[in-house]
Nucleic acid binder design. Structure first.
Length: 431
RNA sequence: GGAGAGGUGGCAGAGCGGUUGAAUGCGGCGGUCUUGAAAACCGUUGAACCUUCACGGGUUCCGUGAGUUCGAAUCUCACCCUCUCCGCCA
């Protein structure tokens, strides 16, 4: 959520940001109009309440309170009427109200883009920042990971469909072990970089989901239990970011780094027909997520080091990758600036997203109410929140299967992973 | 799921329906004292919002939401959460 004060002070900046994202900026004017109305209504209510309180204080001070109350009766009754009327007017547009139009408009404004974000509408307009490693050259025909996995007996999509329908996969034997090895590897590396490991709830309340900006009209539908009103997390960014919701941290608490391995659940309603085969896009996948809470002035640098942390994992796995700066039209609702880390997928002959690192500035912190105090005397300020995958387990698995495939159909395990996997190779016979 | 207890400021813990945003203690901050520190003593110390160029003024907040009242932390109702015991269970 944006700061209403910022919208008042610099509406043009907000409009420009909306336009760059390809979103109609007209709601900014509507917000300004409603906000003006609301504030004058509020002032009216407060003036009347102040008068009423003065009368009550008079009664409280009087020796004969009943008598005093009786004497002030006419004024009090008159005030009560006026207050009720004024309150009704203010209540209509109060942003506190769940169905307030002002609130709805405010909540649906995306974060303000960082000035460094490149213009553009689609993936094509993303700007490559750097490339690391060279895609491996194959002297045989590369196979897609599902073919490799199924013939090795470590991936099973048919039975997954039997159990759960489309967009599910089953990891078996060495496939499951490799996945577990990756999780361990990722978490160990995160720990080495001072991230604190967390096992968060995988189901969260509507409020929590709302607080990190996942529940908006721009969001894809999530799995949920309507009866319990609990939502299955689409990423552990949600519980990790909201961890310190409604808290005021002290400056010594910052920066705060958290890492969580968790399953993630997504309906992928908007992705019909995309990546229908294989592990690329599933209703359930696993991920190690990295989250930072920082002071505002350092979030820019933190985004770089967070991205570097994600990349380092790929470098260590010797997987060729690149970093792209997302263009204005591609950046998520919460984010001011996002780098995607993309890994080389041989069967597609291109790089695919394996981590998305975002600086959400104070946007989520304002919704979730995560603040800090620089000094015991200073006012609390909102922290900045950042998140990135480190990494998506399923997609890393894809990358390993495809990039490390051998002519005989076996898989060589990346060096960095061998001690975790406890082996060097996956072969047909080994399952 | 059944039975009970409880939710007050950073924490602990008071609070006959009336100048209570809230005693007291701890902690925090500032100061006195000290070569320095500790101790002691003094002072100060919640948040959001509205209004003002500013000084300041005002409103709201004691789990949440309604209600009674001129006036509610205090009374009524509903809901939520936490804890204890029982049942079930990985």
């Amino acid at each position: 959520m944006l700061d209403i004060n910022l919208i008042r002070r610099d509406p043009d900046r907000v409009r420009r940001s909306c336009e760059r994202r390809g979103i109609d900026p007209s709601s900014v004017d509507e917000i300004l109009r409603l906000d003006e109305q609301y504030r004058s209504a509020q002032t009216a209510v407060q003036t009347l309440l102040s008068q009423k309180n003065a009368h009550s204080a008079t009664i409280a001070r009087a020796d004969d309170k009943a008598e005093a109350a009786k004497a002030l009766r006419p004024q009090l009754d008159d005030l009560a009427q006026q207050i009720a009327a004024a309150e009704e007017r203010a209540e209509m547009i109060s942003p506190q109200r769940a169905d307030s139009p002002l609130r709805a408009l405010l909540e649906n404004l995306p974060n303000i883009l960082d000035s460094a974000v490149p213009d553009g509408k689609t993936e094509e307009d993303n700007v490559e920042v750097r490339r690391v490693g060279t895609p491996r050259a194959f002297d045989f025909e590369v196979k897609p990971h599902w073919t490799i996995g199924e013939s090795l007996g470590i991936l099973d999509f048919e039975r997954a469909a039997k159990l759960a329908g489309s967009r599910f996969g089953i990891l078996i034997g060495d496939g499951a072990r490799l996945s577990r090895a990756l999780i361990d590897f990722f978490l160990d590396r995160a720990r080495a970089k001072s991230y604190v490991e967390v096992v968060p709830p995988y189901l969260v309340t509507r409020r929590t989901m709302w607080s990190t900006g996942q529940l908006t009209k721009f969001s894809d539908a999530m799995f949920c239990d309507p009866e319990a009103d609990l939502f299955m997390i689409p990423t552990s960014e949600v519980p990790l970011t909201a961890l310190h919701g409604e808290e005021i941290l002290s400056i010594e608490d910052l920066p705060r780094r958290y890492a969580a391995y968790s399953p993630c659940f997504r309906k992928e309603a908007g992705a019909a027909g995309k990546d229908t085969r294989g592990l690329m896009r599933q209703h359930q996948f696993e991920k190690v997520e990295l989250v930072w809470l920082t002071v505002p002035e350092s979030s820019g640098d933190v985004l770089d080091s967070l991205t570097a942390d994600a990349e380092a994992l790929l470098s260590e796995l010797e997987l060729s990758h690149r970093v792209v700066a997302l263009c204005a039209g591609e950046i998520g609702f919460n984010s001011a600036k996002t780098y995607d880390v993309e890994v080389w997928i041989p069967s597609e002959g291109r790089y695919r997203e394996i981590s998305s690192c975002s600086n959400c500035t104070d946007f989520q912190a304002r919704r979730a109410d995560i603040r800090f105090r620089r000094d015991p005397k200073k006012k609390p300020e909102f922290v900045h929140t950042l998140n990135g995958s480190g990494l998506a387990v399923g997609r890393t698995l894809i990358a390993i299967l495809e990039n490390y495939q051998q002519a005989d159909g076996s898989i060589t395990i990346p060096l960095a992973l061998r001690s975790y996997f406890n082996g060097e190779k996956i072969e047909r016979s080994s399952t």
